[in-house]
Amino acid sequence: MKVRISGNKIRFRLKEPEVKEFQQKGTVSEMLEFGSDEKDQLKFTLAENELDEINIRFVQNETTVSVPKTKADLWTSTELVGFEAEVDTGKGKTVSILVEKDFMCMDGREEENVGSYPNPLANL
């Protein structure tokens, strides 16, 4: 999973095997390890839930984006590229969330494209 943060915006881009894992398990994570101790790790998780709307939380070095099961099922079982939401943090801020399927880069190195979805622009 690729994670991009800019201001109060977060974007998750998942390759095909990660989307399948999310579909099967209801969760997928990526971790940045500064050390071997749990307090030295920064974790990003996409998780399915039974809520009616997308939510985000940050607890113990883990950012979790929670997605309603109906939206998760639609995204993982169709050609839908992604979904987004503006989430009120309850602390006077909003966070923009974008979750997308990751397409192959047409000018990228082959190893970076492993597991990516075919780029729909590649045949134009």
Rank of each mutant, 00 (worst) to 15 (best):
V59I: 11
K43S: 13
K101W: 02
I5C: 15
N113F: 10
E112D: 09
F34L: 04
D107K: 01
R57V: 05
Y117R: 00
V114A: 12
V19W: 02
V3E: 10
L80N: 07
K69G: 09
R13N: 15
E53V: 07
F44G: 13
T45M: 14
L98W: 10
W75G: 09
V99I: 13
E110F: 10
F83T: 00
L42R: 11
N61G: 06
L121R: 05
I10H: 04
G90H: 01
E50N: 14
F12R: 00
V28T: 04
F34H: 11
D88M: 02
E48L: 04
F22S: 02
E50K: 04
M31H: 09
G35W: 06
V59P: 08
R57C: 13
G90P: 05
E79F: 00
N55L: 08
L46N: 10
M31A: 14
T78I: 07
V95T: 04
S29V: 02
K43H: 03
S116C: 13
K20C: 11
R109H: 12
S66H: 06
E79N: 01
S6A: 14
E38A: 13
G92M: 09
T70C: 13
I97V: 10
S29H: 06
L98S: 06
E110N: 10
S29D: 14
M104A: 12
W75A: 08
Q24P: 05
N123E: 15
D52I: 05
A47S: 12
R109M: 14
D88L: 03
V3W: 01
G115N: 00
E110I: 01
R109A: 11
Q23A: 11
E33R: 09
R11T: 02
L51W: 14
Q60Y: 15
S116Y: 02
T78L: 03
E53K: 05
K91L: 10
G35D: 02
G82C: 01
L14K: 00
V81Y: 12
P68V: 00
V65G: 06
D37E: 11
N123Y: 06
S77L: 03
E112W: 10
Y117E: 09
E79T: 04
E48N: 06
R109N: 07
N55Y: 13
T89R: 11
Y117T: 12
S29K: 08
K69Q: 12
K15F: 14
L14Y: 01
E18S: 09
K71A: 09
S77R: 08
D40V: 03
K101S: 03
L121W: 12
S116D: 11
M106P: 14
V67G: 03
L51E: 15
V87S: 11
L14W: 06
D52A: 05
F12M: 00
L124C: 12
E84I: 05
N55A: 14
E16Q: 14
P17D: 02
T27K: 13
V59F: 15
G90Q: 01
K15T: 01
T76F: 08
L124P: 14
N113R: 00
G35Y: 07
M106Q: 15
A85K: 00
P68G: 08
L98D: 07
S66I: 05
E110Q: 05
A122N: 05
T89H: 07
N49L: 11
K43R: 10
K101A: 04
E110V: 04
N119T: 02
K9I: 06
G35T: 11
A122M: 06
N123L: 10
K93C: 07
G82M: 01
E38F: 11
A47L: 01
E50Y: 04
A85V: 00
Q23N: 12
R109E: 12
K25C: 12
I54C: 10
